[in-house]
Nucleic acid binder design. Structure first.
Lengths: 193, 193
DNA sequence: CAATATTTGTACCGATAGGTATTGAAAGCG
DNA sequence: CGCTTTCAATACCTATCGGTACAAATATTG
């Protein structure tokens, strides 16, 4: 019972996500958010909690939506296919015309004031978790003989993650998809697998 | 004539630089700055102009100081030495204990509000200029036969820059120097030179 | 219909943002 | 010394920040 909500939760969350994605956590104001989401402030707080809670929900939606390719990539059958799909997916995601340039987990809060430090740490942890997932997948590959014996899965995972982050910075600076694909060609041509 | 300035311009600028480096352009407030610089607000405005001008001066000092290794790297005699020194220098700079983690040109303003957009563009241009300098150096190397004929200097420069940016993001997330050196080993082992 | 539960809109809160007007202090020069 | 010039310090400006109190509006339930 009670008056029903007059807006769509997920649509509003998507708007918030795109804003955080483009302007970062601290660069996005509540006024920006309410305007883009088409709701007013008390409705936002009732539905999502404070700004920090809203960002975390947007991050969750990011991981389950635009960034979901990472899970699919990890399900590829060979280590090389995993790496290739991770890199190509990163270039596609960060340069898709319908998205803000770059990656939310990189530009959401790389450096910020004390007020944003909790979110900064959350994004750092999020990147570390992604890197750990790659490492585990590569460890599995190694135990299957799908990775050279002299290759350390942790090193390779960190290397792949580093290139993904670099691609995100390039995209934030306006790099086009084709240019990033050439970067990926260079990275792939010379991998130890 | 007139009353002499009671603080050291360059020392104050260094304090501002370290603050911007750690917290980004918008994450650093004027109160943060005046406190760290040991001066009060009107002195700051008289000596450096507004916040935006102060940041540009800090960026200039960054390029001429902590980031000056890039120029030295470009003066190396072989293309491989250039690339190696660029990468090793990036890891050293972004993980030096006496510095904030990461790179000012990456985390200074990757994503921000409209108010910071001018600085964001400046940093984007700064990164592009660095990449262009690498490309020109590699073009020169190619004309000297120091680069394989099938290697595009622009592609290689973009690849190197991408790894440098990735290293900066890793360092901002707390990565240690040793780990980044392993990333560099992987990148170097497989370069087309 | 009346009663209740929930959302909405407006208007506001204290705190802080970047930036400045003004006054008093400290130096050089005659 | 007295005059001028520059800097330093306090206090203040408007705008905006994230967050909320309160009352009007809209639905379900009896």
């Amino acid at each position: 019972m009670g008056r029903p909500r007059s807006f769509d939760l997920n649509k509003a969350l998507d708007r918030a996500l795109h804003l955080f994605w483009r302007k970062g956590y601290e660069g996005t104001s509540l006024s920006d958010l309410t305007k883009a989401m088409g709701i007013n402030r008390p409705s936002l707080y009732a539905a999502f909690g404070d700004k920090e809670a809203l960002f975390r929900k947007a991050l969750e939606r990011y991981r389950g939506g635009p960034a979901a390719y990472t899970q699919e990539a990890l399900n590829e059958t060979t280590a090389r296919a995993v790496v290739e799909r991770l890199l190509r997916g990163a270039a596609d995601l960060t340069t898709a015309p319908r998205n803000p340039g770059g990656c939310l987990t990189v530009q959401g809060a790389l450096a910020c004031s004390e007020a944003g430090d909790s979110i900064r740490q959350e994004l750092t942890a999020c990147r570390a978790a992604g890197e750990a997932a790659i490492r585990r997948r590569l460890e599995h590959a190694k135990s299957n003989g799908d990775l050279p014996a002299d290759t350390d899965p942790a090193d390779l995972a960190r290397y792949v993650a580093t290139i993904v982050y670099g691609i995100a910075v390039q995209a934030a600076g306006g790099a086009r998809r084709g240019k990033l694909q050439r970067v990926i060609e260079m990275a792939l041509r010379t991998l130890p697998l």
